[in-house]
Design a protein around this nucleic acid. Structure first.
Lengths: 194, 194
DNA sequence: CCTTTTTTGTACTGATCAGTCAACTATTAG
DNA sequence: CTAATAGTTGACTGATCAGTACAAAAAAGG
């Protein structure tokens, strides 16, 4: 009982996620968060406690929406062969990153990199996202090796981890370069290395 | 003429570099910079103009010291075969990153990622460092292919770019993980993919 | 209706921010 | 020596920071 909230938690966290995604943790001000969520300070703090707790929620929300959508493509047999799915993963981020003038990149990667907001809680959230992607790629590599689509001469986990690293490196490069060919080279090279 | 400076520019920029490296651009305060450099606010601003200009100098300094040292190893024939040198590159950062409790990682990568200080000037400095590393790796791959140490069935630039991406991905992963084996897997996989 | 509970909006807090400024100091030129 | 130039110092600026206090408002139970 009591007065009901006038907002949807999801919508507010989505809006906060956008702010942190654009500006990073430290540079995002509580005023920015109020403006974008449409909430007053009182409501924001009543609901989320602190800027950092809202940051954690934003990272969770990123995992539950953007990151999970990528995992779904990787896990979907209708998305094509193993190579096709991994190509789709990289091609998707190349196009998305290049199309974004703000060069926001990947929120989890940003959170991993920014020293300021990186508490153990945040690091754990990021670690989980990294582990989920590693697992999804590893599962795909294992599948590919079993069906004969990929050579089976190396440990799937090692192959997956290297591919994942190339993926994150790709997103780092996309932060500062406009050279699509360079990013496509990374993709082609990573696929050729499977 | 006039009163001489009481400090060495290199030493001051080195100290500032440490601050930005530890905290990132936004979270580093001018007070931090004064404390670590030993300079008063007036001297700092007289010599460097603004926090952001000092940031640019710090990134240049990083390139001239840390990054160049890595390039030197890659370019040094006495450092071993192509594979050995590339292994040394990755092994070195794995050990360095794991040994650093602050998980500072690579300053250029941090600067690429942090939205806050990423002006076009900073992006250009980072781009140059990325390009220098790409070139050094590409040169090595070309060499390896010529001597027969590496298979010559793929374009050296593509191979180099993919390796470079795995390298930066490695540094991202090292920000949040303590799993040395995961990082070593990335390295072994990247070397196996050459 | 009144009480209880929760949310909301806003004014406010002390701290801290990047940057400035003027007085002072050290140096060289003449 | 004096004048000119450049560096240093620390107090100061107005703005902005994350977070709080509190009263008004909106709901439910009685």
């Amino acid at each position: 009982m009591g007065r009901p909230r006038e907002f949807s938690d999801h919508a507010v966290v989505d809006a906060a996620m956008e702010v942190f995604w654009e500006k990073g943790y430290e540079a995002a001000t509580t005023q920015d968060l109020c403006d974008r969520t449409g909430l007053g300070r009182g409501s924001l703090y009543n609901a989320f406690g602190s800027k950092h707790r809202l940051y954690e929620e934003a990272i969770r929300r990123y995992a539950a929406t953007r990151a999970d959508a990528q995992l779904a493509i990787l896990a979907d047999p209708e998305a094509g062969s193993v190579r096709e799915r991994l190509r789709e993963l990289m091609l998707g981020v190349i196009e998305a990153d290049m199309a974004d003038p703000g060069r926001r990149g990947c929120l989890a990667l940003n959170a991993a990199t920014e020293p300021s907001g990186r508490t153990e809680a945040v690091a754990a959230l990021v670690r989980r996202q990294f582990a989920d992607l590693e697992q999804a790629i590893c599962h795909l590599v294992t599948l590919g090796q079993r069906t004969g689509e990929l050579p089976a001469d190396r440990a799937p986990l090692q192959v997956a981890r290297t591919f994942q690293s190339a993926y994150y490196g790709l997103r780092v490069l996309a932060k500062v370069t406009d050279d699509r060919n360079a990013l496509l080279d990374v993709m082609e090279g990573a696929l050729a290395a499977l």
